[in-house]
Write a protein that binds this DNA or RNA. Structure first.
Length: 937
DNA sequence: GACATCACG
DNA sequence: GACGTACGTGATGTCC
């Protein structure tokens, strides 16, 4: 018996995505007890649906209802504007597998569930709402999305379920300053940072409403823009007309989406107990199952496996883990055994994975074996290419050890599992394993990483290597690898370790990883770092893996020529130095140099350090040179060349991969306490730039043929963050006005007008600005500026007088650190400061580190966000992101697309804080390009 | 393996 | 009143 939709009918349209995200963020990361499947969002979603159904609306009750979902991320709006919603964070990995389950939940509750490829949920809602209105019915849209407000009126209202508030025409006017019919006009002008709708720069909702009310509508406004009195506003509207018109198209909902159902199909139906209850049981929602069963007057279904109820608010506890002594480690030697393991993984939905390789260089080593673990104490090792050492016959080829599955068969069998979006792969330092798998044709995803979980939880407390974590959190010392591999002459690679020795070691690594995951993952929520882990750590893994694997092209000949030139110059200098010293000695030995300078030549200023050796650092030698001494001056020259040669021109050549002809660095994600990355093997974050000689090394970093290098760097990002965090109006205004911040500081401090600024005064102010970021001290500033300590202290006092907010920030931060033992960045990254309670000089260090960490860390968070969003943004361009140097990203791009890339990448970087943090200062990104890094920078 | 030195942000 | 000091990293060469 079907009711045709018409007068007297009441349609409810529920914004499904909004429900899901609210459920996801409102609840701790619950997992299904029996197998660990992430289920928190589904639980919250079901609770909301149940509440919705239970609500007694009386005569207002809906006759028709539907939950509307988004489908896919690409819509017709992306075709109009490729940056549409480009600011959005990727969906958290533990939410992704829950999306299909929310559809199933909707169906289980017997509510119509609709979505349409290429359209947003909002468009479907708009189409249905308009159809319903035309049919003479009433509509309630359950959502608080302001984009839907344009639909309100004539029987359509919205309901903000969160605040339980109805939004009618007056509500819309309150929000936008215009009626629903003009909402799109206001949005087109004001733009939207969340959806990345550009709008008109400098015009917000207030101004937009004012203009629309004055001119009637957007089209009249734009046509008559010349009449606007305010010159800036007039110019903005004329200049950005196209952008405003595009914005209007982006925010305008499509009321004519091609739907394959009618309103009549949405008639409200009661849930079927025989459908709903089994679904809730399968999800293991105990409390909710009982509540639903009660309403149906049925017996509550039995749920064996425990309390993963949607009402549980405390973090799930770590399951009981068997003693390591009782662990069972298996060697997989035939396909049947492998299939059994794969079956267990599929049943579970997650697996801890570890790879064994012939070395540590991910770009060169071979995969030797794979370990898997699905349950604490139960793991396996799959040997792949272990060899028998040919110790008897020096000339015999090592042959493959018996009893190993063909590597191709194993990889083919594991690939579907490792790439299955519904199976979580857990690892310790997954970037390493991901790269090994990638080189073997497997794109492993989704992943969890115990190293990164620990980093989000414990940065500043201890390291995040597996041995450390195992000892601290599992009270177990892992089997050391050293005895297996030997050392010195007898060293061997893992493929030469006999399989029966390899199994316990390798399988244990996977076991430990799984146990760490069970122990640490549930702690993220209580420590309030789930977002940090989900949005700043985990998504970075594939991004960095790709950058590292792609590498940067380095020209060997350039480096080799420079090495030779340096060697010649050094030989000349060395002879000169020996002549000046009156004897031959090792110029590279600080100890010998100290003896020459201060004992034999009896120069002044010899100071011994704690080890009893003379200090011969650059500052000491510079002072001596300034006093007119030749020898220290020549040693400084020699050291400069020696550094460049050994660390750069020589060493970099060794790092050129013979297969790719490129240099592949490795980024440590969990190395620096502040959230910065660190680069190693080789370190490409400290390639010289400050000296002329050094900068030329960057000429060896080149673009491939037909391509060009692009460098984009944040201008003064840490000072901008300081201005925001410490809330310093003068600094914020200076950044908004695009002023020279060091000159402005100098002007404030020394009462020098900007147009009379000298480079020397500006230099001093610059040193102070940097000092502030580092937790300034009179001593440090004095040393840096080479001025008396009293004078430096005077500068600092004056600075704090002029910018009292900075002093306040410093004391607030150290107080916070003392009280809590940690500090946080704007994005919630937690950096522990255990030493803050120490006595003596250590407290000073800890204090300054605590002041610096939120600033340096926030900058690190911002560039991480940019990097994570970058692949999607530059997807269509013939380019690659190659390197990160703290506040700089380097790309390689086809000549033809260079301008486009700069546009897109700059936009991503400048908006990287949005929408989580609204900075009071703009972020500015400078760009450079060239055939090599020296030109691009 | 500790230490000093120096490259970068 | 003494302590000793700018923040965060990684690579290299000496020397024990």
């Amino acid at each position: 018996m079907s009711l045709n939709f018409g007068k007297g009918c009441h349609l409810h349209l529920i914004d499904g995505s909004a429900f899901i995200f609210r459920a996801y963020h409102a609840l701790p990361p619950l997992t299904r007890k029996s197998d660990g499947l992430p289920i928190g969002a589904v639980a919250g979603f079901c609770n909301m649906l149940q509440k919705y159904i239970e609500e007694d609306n009386g005569p207002d009750a809906p006759t028709h209802a539907a939950v509307i979902f988004d489908k896919g991320s690409h819509t017709f709006r992306n075709d109009m504007y490729d940056l549409y919603k480009a600011n959005r964070d990727a969906m958290p990995e533990d939410l992704r597998p829950q999306m299909p389950l929310t559809r199933r939940a909707t169906e289980a509750f017997n509510i119509a569930c609709e979505e349409l490829e290429g359209y947003e949920a909002d468009d479907i809602i708009a189409t249905l709402a308009v159809q319903a209105r035309e049919a003479g019915g009433r509509v309630t849209i359950i959502s608080s999305d302001k984009d839907l407000m344009q639909l309100v009126g004539g029987g359509i209202e919205m309901l903000d379920a969160m605040k339980n508030r109805r939004i009618d025409v007056e509500g819309v006017e309150e929000k936008f300053g215009v009626g629903p019919d003009r909402v799109v006009d206001v949005q087109a002008l004001a733009g939207d940072s969340v959806d990345n709708v550009p709008g008109a720069p400098g015009i917000g909702i207030k101004t937009a409403a004012l203009l629309i009310n004055e001119y009637g509508d957007l089209e009249s406004l734009l046509d008559r823009a010349e009449e606007i009195k305010q010159p800036k506003r007039r110019q903005t509207l004329i200049e950005h007309r196209a952008q405003i018109e595009l914005s209007k198209k982006l925010v305008q909902l499509d009321c004519n989406t091609p739907l394959e159902f009618t309103l009549d199909d949405l008639e409200v139906r009661d849930p079927e107990p025989d459908v709903l209850l089994p679904f809730l049981t399968e999800m293991e929602f105990r409390t909710l199952s009982k509540r639903v069963a009660d309403r149906f007057g049925r017996e509550a279904p039995e749920i064996q496996s425990g309390p993963a109820t949607p009402n549980a608010t405390d973090a799930p506890s770590t399951p009981e883990q068997p003693d390591f002594a009782d662990a069972h480690y298996e060697c997989v030697r035939d396909m049947a055994a492998l299939e059994t393991w794969i079956g267990q993984i599929r049943k579970r939905g997650y697996v801890a994975v570890d790879t064994e390789t012939t070395g540590l260089n991910e770009m060169r080593v071979d995969l030797v074996g794979i370990s898997l673990c699905v349950e604490a104490g139960h793991a396996c090792y799959i040997p792949l290419i272990h060899r028998e050492g040919a110790s008897d016959d020096l000339f015999a080829e090592d042959k493959l050890a018996d009893g190993q599955l063909p590597i191709a068969d194993v990889l083919a069998a594991l690939k579907p599992v490792l790439e299955d979006p519904a199976i979580l792969k857990i690892g310790q330092n997954m970037k390493y394993d991901a790269k090994i798998f990638a080189r073997n044709g497997i794109d492993i995803a989704p992943i969890d990483d115990t190293m990164l979980i620990s980093y989000a939880l414990h940065a500043g407390l201890h390291g995040h290597g597996m041995d450390t974590l195992s000892e601290r959190y599992l009270d177990h010392t892992p089997i050391p690898i050293k005895p297996l591999l030997g050392s010195g002459k007898s060293a061997r690679t893992f493929d030469l370790v006999p399989i029966d020795e390899a199994v316990p070691y390798a399988a244990e690594d996977a076991d430990i990883t799984l146990r760490l995951w069970q122990t640490l993952k549930p702690r993220l929520h209580a420590a309030k770092v789930t977002r940090v882990y989900e949005r700043l750590e985990r998504p970075l893994v594939p991004v960095l893996a790709e950058m590292e694997m792609h590498g940067v092209k380095v020209d060997r000949d350039t480096l080799s020529r420079m090495s030779n030139a340096f060697a010649q110059k050094m030989a000349g200098l060395e002879a000169e130095i020996h002549a000046l010293a009156g004897r031959s000695f090792n110029v590279g030995s600080p100890k010998q140099l100290g003896e020459i300078l201060f004992d034999e030549m009896s120069l002044e200023g010899g100071k011994k350090g704690k080890t009893g050796a003379y200090a011969t650092g650059a500052d000491v030698l510079e002072d001596l040179a300034a006093m007119g001494h030749e020898l220290p001056a020549r040693v400084l020259d020699w050291r400069g060349l020696s550094k460049l040669k050994s660390t750069y021109t020589d060493a970099l050549q060794e790092h050129i991969n013979p297969e790719t002809g490129r240099v592949h660095t490795s980024y440590l994600i969990a190395g620096a306490n502040t959230g910065r990355l660190a680069s190693s093997d080789p370190n490409l974050q400290n390639i010289p730039v400050r000296s002329e000689d050094g900068r030329r090394i960057r000429e060896a970093f080149i673009a491939d043929e037909g391509k060009t290098l692009i460098s984009l760097d944040y201008s003064q990002i840490e000072l901008r963050i300081l201005a925001h965090i410490a809330n310093i109006d003068a600094l914020k205004q200076a950044f908004r006005d695009g002023q020279d911040i060091h000159a402005m500081t100098a002007s404030e401090m020394f009462d020098v007008p900007l147009d009379e600024m000298t480079p020397e005064i500006r230099r001093q102010a610059k040193a102070i600005n940097f000092g502030v970021i580092y937790g300034i001290s009179g001593f440090g500033l004095a040393r840096n500026l080479r001025i008396p300590r009293s004078e430096a202290q005077g500068f600092i006092d004056r600075y704090f007088e002029r910018f009292p907010g900075i002093k306040q920030y410093m004391s607030d931060t150290t107080e916070f650190a003392k009280e809590h033992g940690f500090v946080r960045t704007l994005f919630g990254r937690t950096i522990h400061t255990p030493e803050i309670a120490a006595k003596g000089p250590r407290a000073g260090f800890a204090k300054r580190a605590a002041i610096n960490a939120p600033i340096q860390g926030t900058a690190a968070d911002i560039i991480r966000r940019a990097m994570i969003r970058m692949p999607d943004a530059i997807n269509d361009l013939p380019c690659k992101m190659l390197l990160q140097v703290h506040d700089e990203l380097i790309f390689e791009v086809d000549h033809s697309a260079a301008d486009q890339l700069i546009d897109v990448a700059r936009t991503v970087m400048q908006n990287a804080a949005d929408p989580v943090v609204k900075l009071d200062v703009p972020l500015i990104v400078d760009a450079g390009r060239g055939a090599n890094w020296a030109e691009a920078h």
